[in-house]
Design a protein around this nucleic acid. Structure first.
Length: 397
DNA sequence: TCTGGGGTCCTAGGACCC
DNA sequence: TCTGGGGTCCTAGGACCC
């Protein structure tokens, strides 16, 4: 989906069309006062001048989506809002409304499913679709079906999307980026040299900033450069699995299937504080947040019908370094108090001398509720701990 | 003026077991 | 005394993605 979050917002606020618009943050935005002042009137009647501007934002949020009018200013996804405000102060800033985006996500996926049942969910705004056995799916190399889908989605939702059609998921993902927004691109096996090899390695889904930097240091900039390196050399540089994968990717080889069903592996909740907190000075506040995170993750588990054996915490310190601790129980749990107890044990094993900017709680090794939990893998030694105390409830120093 | 939240997968070392 | 060889599970960190 093209600039998905922003495009959904523009359906509500069409008066913002054509302006640089940024979605992100969440702690500020068109505040309730604004919405209340215009209560009873359509949202589209709110004057443009009333909307909050990026320059007035203070907080720790990041951009989730920037419209195409905002991108020329050098801002884009994952950039801190305070930094973005310097580059494009006049952009309008709206808070993230996940519930709304999920509604539209459901809608466009239902349309895709009705036309092609082999669909892999890749998050709120992206899917892989197997065209292979769809009647007419091969016509014009897939272009006909892609056009039908674009039209059906636009008719039902008012949103545009970009589609790449290719022999596998790796190439289809790259192709989908060629003609944004509202584009269709076809990549055939013969097109590798012409269309893929000139691209930066970073365009491969699976090569991130770290790997890209390593590749650059080795003089490898484009996918063609990568394809030119002998496979054994890449294996030697990057390890058996990743080296071989890099070589395959550069040659457009990918045999991953389109996966239509999957079970969740973990569920988590985390939060970044508005200001850094210290376990010594802000224990009450930290304790309250900690309890709330446990309650939220417990509610998520119960609503979706899962429980889990591995309970973990995540801390991010003021210097942005991250620490995690986890512990695996004999039996899966899903209630907030039990999660809080286990997470509290984890908390005792992590240094708490630095200020914290983030706290998170995670439950992994999930099993579906009602399904027989696997027997304990091995005898775990009895833990001699006070299960009812943790650093946020008991005195620290 | 630093850098969200929710995920998946991989690696590597140690414990433990046969 | 010169220290097997698998295999699985657990834990911590990190890369990457949407």
């Amino acid at each position: 989906m093209d600039a998905f979050f922003a495009s959904v917002e523009l359906l509500r606020y069409p008066q913002l069309k054509g302006l640089p618009l940024v979605i992100g943050g969440g702690r500020r935005g068109p505040d309730n006062a604004l919405l209340q002042r215009y209560a009873g009137q359509p949202l589209s009647a709110i004057p443009v001048e009333e909307f909050p501007l990026l320059k007035d934002y203070t907080g720790r949020g990041v951009i989730t989506t920037a419209t195409y009018q905002a991108r020329p200013f050098g801002i884009g996804s994952a950039m801190g809002l305070m930094k973005a405000a310097r580059l494009c102060p006049q952009a309008i800033l709206l808070p993230v409304d996940f519930a709304e985006y999920r509604r539209f996500s459901r809608q466009f996926k239902d349309i895709v499913l009705s036309m092609a049942p082999l669909m892999e969910d890749r998050g709120v705004d992206e899917v892989y679709i197997d065209f292979t056995d769809i009647p007419g799916g091969q016509r014009q190399g897939g272009r006909s079906l892609a056009q039908l889908m674009q039209r059906a989605i636009a008719d039902a939702t008012g949103l545009t999307c970009s589609i790449g059609v290719a022999p596998n998921k790796l190439l289809a993902k790259m192709a989908s980026e060629f003609n944004k927004p509202h584009g269709i691109s076809i990549v055939q096996p013969d097109d590798l040299q012409r269309l893929i090899w000139p691209l930066a390695c970073r365009k491969i889904n699976g090569i991130g900033p770290k790997s890209d930097a390593r590749l650059q240091a080795l003089g490898i900039t484009t996918i063609g450069d990568l394809a030119a390196r002998p496979r054994p050399w890449l294996v030697q540089q990057f390890g058996k699995a990743y080296g071989a994968w890099l070589h395959d990717a550069a040659w457009g080889r990918d045999d991953r299937p389109v996966v239509t069903e999957s079970e969740p592996v973990s569920m988590s909740r985390e939060t970044t504080f508005e200001r850094d907190l210290h376990a010594r000075d802000d224990r009450q506040e930290l304790g309250a947040v900690f309890t709330r995170l446990c309650e939220q993750v417990a509610a998520d588990l119960q609503r979706k019908g899962y429980s889990g054996r591995t309970i973990g915490i995540k801390l991010r310190y003021a210097d942005f370094k991250t620490a995690t601790r986890d512990m695996t129980l004999d039996l899966p749990i899903a209630d907030a108090a039990a999660i809080r107890r286990a997470a509290g044990q984890c908390l005792k094993r992590v240094p708490l001398t630095q200020r914290l900017r983030l706290l998170g709680v995670r439950v992994g090794a999930l099993v579906k509720a009602g399904e027989e939990p696997p027997p304990p893998a091995r005898r775990t030694p009895a833990r001699r701990t006070r299960a009812d105390s943790d650093p946020f409830t008991a005195p620290l120093f």
